[in-house]
């Protein structure tokens, strides 16, 4: 930590404060700086506001545990398949080490946590992706856990709520990760045929192979405000069209306007929105 007087020395024009770690956006100091507007907020206060900036409404990324904590009824969560861990199926350079480092740093076994719980008393099968685990990319384990969750929901006829976030398929597992798109989408098809509700919530960012599979297949698709939602990365599009992209391109608001999602729901309203949807889909006259 530089001494206070040193901050104004030399060529440095801006004072760097490091209140949030860049990728996870987890506050780790007394004060937190908003990624979007730069507003400094007392971290306690930011946490009280569910990690949403008071000034500009920016929604910080949440860890899987945080998301579960603010979504499910207290004490209701039971985790599934936590023992599934990634192998290194195509012996991709550096992958095994990266997995190990990531497990150490995040305390997570993989990029998705699945389980069951209740929301406002209504039972749900729930999945939450955590961007801090290799960009919540989908490899064999993510695909398997998601498929198992859909299958369990199909058997037990319990609605699914999936909080999506992802950089896409996990390159380090080659074509096996690509095929997880097919596996999870096929599992969605069966859930749908069984007439069980699936609510997909797109959080910042939901992109590429995950957007192009189960994230887009909800009966109802919700997004958090400002979330980046798109298939192709913006840099790739800019290189293709050789133009700067318009502001707001691929934002939650943009995809709502283009008819790709049902609604945008602020974090503080998410739980009650989900509870209402679950209530409206409650099975009253179950046949058989």
């Amino acid at each position: 930590m530089p001494a206070f007087k040193d901050l104004f020395k030399g060529k440095q024009k801006y004072v760097t404060v490091k209140p949030t770690s860049i990728q996870t956006e987890q506050p780790d100091g007394l004060w937190s700086k908003c990624t979007r507007c730069g507003q400094l907020t007392y971290t306690r206060e930011l946490a009280h506001n569910l990690l949403v900036c008071h000034k500009c409404g920016f929604h910080f990324k949440l860890s899987a545990a945080q998301r579960l904590a603010i979504t499910l009824d207290e004490g209701s969560f039971v985790e599934f398949d936590s023992g599934l861990v990634s192998a290194d199926p195509i012996e991709f350079p550096g992958y095994a080490a990266k997995l190990e480092r990531t497990r150490q740093a995040t305390g997570l076994e993989e990029a998705v946590v699945t389980g069951q719980g209740t929301i406002g008393g209504y039972p749900v099968m729930i999945g939450v992706m955590d961007f801090s685990f290799i960009g919540a990319s989908m490899g064999s384990v993510v695909g398997e856990k998601v498929a198992r969750l859909f299958e369990r929901a199909t058997r037990q006829r319990v609605p699914v709520v999936m909080f999506c976030a992802s950089g896409g398929a996990r390159m380090q597992e080659g074509v096996l990760s690509l095929m997880q798109m097919a596996k999870t989408s096929a599992a969605c098809a069966r859930l749908s045929e069984a007439g069980v509700l699936y609510v997909s919530v797109l959080t910042n960012p939901t992109t590429a192979g995950v957007l192009a599979s189960f994230a887009s297949l909800g009966d109802i698709i919700i997004a958090e405000p400002g979330a980046l939602i798109g298939f192709t990365g913006q840099r790739v599009i800019e290189e293709t069209i050789r133009q700067k992209l318009p502001p707001g391109f691929q934002s939650a608001e943009f995809v709502l306007e283009h008819g790709m999602i049902d609604m945008i729901v602020e974090r503080r309203d998410m739980k009650k929105t989900l509870a209402s949807l679950l209530a409206l889909h409650e099975r009253r006259h179950e046949a058989g």
Binding site: S21, Q26, A65, A69, I134
Partner: peptide, 18 residues
């Protein structure tokens, strides 16, 4: 509802990985 207590097993200092 406590997001700080729920930051995850790694605690709030979970490091970036990409």
């Amino acid at each position: 509802g406590d997001v700080l207590r729920a930051a995850g097993p790694a605690g709030p200092k979970g490091e970036a990985n990409r």
